[in-house]
Nucleic acid binder design. Structure first.
Lengths: 202, 202
DNA sequence: ATTCTAATTAGATATTTTTCTAATTAGAAC
DNA sequence: GTTCTAATTAGAAAAATATCTAATTAGAAT
């Protein structure tokens, strides 16, 4: 994780910006504990602690070891030291603003081409088409496989020319097709406009 | 700010854990801007931006320069680099847990000596008295000067022996007296129990 | 002095987040 | 298999936070 993007960082802060969770990290920095023990120390109910631990786990700040049906949690100090390094360099922060203006622009494009839930026309410009496709792929669940007719059906909710859009989703690598089954690719693999534009000929 | 305590750090995270404020830092990392300009960039109303800037200013993450009645805000990059250094060392985190157990103990003491809003007895032990005094000083506004009779009146709400308590607030340096006027000292100057205990004779 | 401008403060509303109870799951012990 | 235990998930209530409009302040320009 060399360059950490705006939303990831924001997420980190959101997770750390909570009394209970920060205390959990402090407690776990000493040794591992079970959920029950942690709940006692923090004077919270177990579901609450479980919920907090889950958020910490999502960011790999803690890890879990099960023994019987007791779950022992411990600190993942590597993630913290990683995080500690060079978050607030000028470069990093400048890169956030790129995200920001980019985001604003994308919203403007969407507003232009959408009428509520429906795509009025498919943008001619590659750059704008990309924005629309990114919006379209969000209508599919991640980690789910769809048949071609299911894909067509979903796209039809938003535009009549489902064939073109389906093909574009694949060629811009928002989705993949394997044995006639379609699946949304994880957002981390989506190409950004700039990456696509760099490839000149597509 | 060598050793940063639990609540200070928590506060930092709370301030940074907000989309608008993090964006503000990003934008300001490039150059200074007026409130109006910032509001336009973030698509928020000016009062909202003003509110966020205020939070950032409290932590000295940004500073302000006025020109006419335009306020220009800029990033205080020093604070960030400071903050960036060694937050998540084992030692740091271990010290939080001390804070945590200390806090828990203080709450127990208070619960023991308070009956709702009223102090049942003044604790004999210096350590516990300190806890009670810290609670008592929180009944005074920061940055406000009080006459002696105002001080007496406020203390009387919580215990009949206002004279002793008033004297103790001064001698433990929770408040200062100047020309017969009283003023609460900033929390950052309050002595912790351990500091007081180190002084042996008081 | 009056008016105008940019910012802030106050207070209301809307949204998000935390925490809880109740229900469910997964494994262990009987 | 049934029962018990520890944890998680679901869903509701409570608390904290963000955002807005309206009112106020402070300085500049007329």
């Amino acid at each position: 994780m060399n360059s950490i993007d705006f939303n990831t960082l924001l997420n980190f802060f959101k997770v750390l910006a909570n009394e209970s969770r920060l205390k959990l990290l402090g407690i776990l920095s000493q040794q591992e504990y079970s959920v029950e023990e942690l709940a006692a120390q923090l004077q919270l109910k177990e579901p609450t602690v479980s919920h907090h631990l889950n958020k910490l786990k999502e960011l790999e700040l803690v890890s879990m070891r099960r023994q019987g049906n007791t779950h022992f949690y411990s600190l993942n100090s590597e993630t913290l030291t990683q995080l500690n390094k060079s978050i607030f360099t000028r470069e990093q922060m400048a890169s956030w603003t790129k995200d920001i203006s980019a985001e604003a622009w994308e919203e403007k494009v969407l507003k232009n081409y959408l009428d509520g839930n429906r795509l009025t026309t498919i943008p001619a410009s590659r750059k704008k088409r990309l924005v629309v496709l990114e919006w379209l792929v969000s209508k599919f669940e991640p980690e789910v496989t769809y048949t071609e007719s299911q894909v067509n059906e979903i796209i039809s909710c938003h535009h009549s020319d489902y064939a073109t859009l389906r093909r574009e989703l694949i060629s811009y690598q928002f989705m993949e097709r394997e044995n006639g089954l379609y699946r949304r690719l994880p957002a981390s693999l989506w190409k950004t406009e700039t990456e696509i534009m760099k490839q000149k000929k597509f």
